[in-house]
């Protein structure tokens, strides 16, 4: 069994608001920057936390979400994982599937981001940039899974050197 010291994690179940999403981002940055010893990596984790929580705020059916942020330093390089779970509608699930299929077809994270920005110029609803930003700017690998109406979005990145 791995110890908390080896895998320090933060898990919060709450009803995010605009203000608490900002506070959660600041909390994650403050907690993980000393553990990662890398301000840029902590910034990527904070950005991902913010974008995933805003998605949950917009799309969670009952307004609640669970976010788990976990550093696994049992192996080298270490893994940093940011995960949200919340209930979503079938329409949102279809939109999410479309977004993941597009990412799967993309040549690279940067190419996909550039394409998403071009499309965002004329897009009227939403930005369509959140997941693309996590992938490209956050340098995260993003996956999704479902359990009934619940979606779990997981973003993972490698942290080469952890203090």
């Amino acid at each position: 069994m791995q110890s908390v010291n080896e895998n320090p994690y933060l898990e919060i179940c709450f009803r995010p608001t605009i203000a608490t999403v900002n506070e959660a981002r600041r909390l994650v940055a403050a907690l993980y920057q000393p553990l990662l010893g890398d301000a840029d990596a902590a910034g990527r984790v904070a950005l991902t936390t913010h974008e995933l929580l805003e998605n949950a705020l917009k799309y969670s059916l009952d307004g609640t979400t669970v976010i788990r942020v976990e550093l696994s330093r049992g192996e080298r390089p270490s893994n940093m994982k940011i995960e949200t779970r919340n209930l979503i509608s079938p329409e949102r699930r279809a939109g999410l599937e479309e977004a993941f299929e597009e990412m799967g077809r993309a040549e690279s994270a940067d190419a996909h981001y550039h394409h998403a920005m071009q499309r965002a110029r004329t897009r009227r609803v939403g930005s369509g940039l959140g997941l693309a930003r996590i992938w490209a700017e956050g340098e995260m690998t993003i996956t999704r899974s479902y359990d009934g109406d619940e979606v779990r979005i997981t973003a993972v990145t490698k942290i080469p050197e952890v203090k």
Binding site: N22, R25, A46, L47, H50, E51, E54, M117, A120, R121, R123, G126, S127, G128, L129, G130, R133
Partner: peptide, 16 residues
């Protein structure tokens, strides 16, 4: 301090 992706889109539109 921070800018989310929807605000980032406002810049994309403007620069376009």
């Amino acid at each position: 301090e921070f800018m989310n992706s929807s605000c980032f889109k406002c810049f994309v539109e403007w620069l376009g």
